[in-house]
């Protein structure tokens, strides 16, 4: 078991569930979950986003002409669709080995935040897609809706234990949204060779608005004094850097620390920093304040 990990299957305990439910309500009342986008294709088949037809205008591309209607009625019409309908929220949690670091582990807080956000979105009747990034790629539940789905989300998050290495941009490159658009919240430590920018842009390219929640252990971005450093995502270890190399490393860690907010800003989202040893309630409060502040700036 990775460091600081909780036992599987006992998530959420009563206290955590109470916090989730309380803050779910809080988040919804505060309007911090303005999930947008259009539903997945299977929902589109219900006709919820099909607006209807419009007459083809001379000069307009024939690409969107409904030829089947023409073959039937000899009238030239163009299909129109609405972009906005009910929303879809993607909550993706980094489940790599580095999330097992800390006591309590970063994973403990990350999945709590994920559960609370998913719970709140389901309460708002949005569709929710919850996924965990693992060494084998994204492991995700099918898109779901309704209050009953929250229990599937809890069970899903409770089953996972952080392990292995994850390349965030690669793992996020093709989210199983089935063509849907909406909002995405990525919860990770964003300690990735490509930095947070590449990961968030990979999500944005799929037509999703993306927010970033970074969970770090206390002092994690400070070069430790230990003689040998081990990779929590693999079996490798090496001696700790000294002198100038140590200073260089610390500067790069500082750079990583400062990179999240600009990266999130560049994709139009908000970057929130949480500390792993913070209580879940406090972390959610921090998230709420950050989102509201972001809205205020917009």
């Amino acid at each position: 078991m990775a460091r600081g990990a909780t036992r599987r299957g006992d998530f959420p305990d009563h206290a955590t569930l109470a916090v989730i439910e309380r803050f779910s309500l809080h988040l919804r009342r505060a309007g911090a979950l303005s999930v947008r986008g259009r539903p997945a294709r299977r929902a589109a088949a219900a006709g919820l986003d099909f607006v209807g037809y419009a007459d083809h205008r001379p000069g307009e591309s024939l690409r969107h002409v409904d030829w089947a209607v023409w073959a039937r009625s000899r009238s030239l019409v163009v299909r129109r669709y609405a972009d906005e309908a009910s929303g879809l929220l993607l909550v993706v949690v980094d489940g790599s080995g580095s999330m097992g670091v800390g006591s309590p582990s970063k994973w403990t807080l990350a999945r709590g935040v994920a559960a609370a956000l998913a719970h709140a979105a389901l309460g708002e009747l949005h569709q929710v897609l919850v996924g965990v990034l693992t060494a084998d790629g994204l492991r995700a539940l099918p898109i779901g809706a309704g209050a009953g789905f929250a229990h599937e989300v809890f069970h899903f998050l409770g089953e996972h234990q952080p392990a292995g290495a994850v390349r965030l941009p690669l793992a996020l490159a093709a989210l199983p949204t089935d063509g849907a658009r909406g909002d995405a919240i990525i919860i990770s430590d964003f300690l990735d060779p490509d930095g947070p920018q590449a990961a968030l842009e990979a999500v944005q390219r799929q037509g999703l608005r993306v927010d970033a929640v970074r969970v770090l252990a206390p002092g994690e971005l400070t070069v430790p004094e230990a003689a040998v450093l081990a990779d929590p995502e693999g079996p490798t270890a090496r001696s700790a850097p000294r002198g100038g190399e140590r200073d260089t490393l610390q500067r790069r860690l500082d750079g990583l620390r400062d990179a999240l907010a600009p990266a999130a800003g560049r994709v139009g989202g908000v970057g929130v920093d949480l500390t792993a040893d913070a209580p879940l309630a406090q972390a959610l409060e921090t998230y709420l304040q950050a989102v509201q502040a972001h809205r205020g700036r917009q």
Binding site: E220, V228, L229, A230, P232
Partner: peptide, 13 residues
């Protein structure tokens, strides 16, 4: 022996 988990291990040369 005696290692310390370092999550930004990829930054090391």
């Amino acid at each position: 022996a005696g290692d310390h988990p370092f999550t930004a291990f990829f930054l090391l040369p």
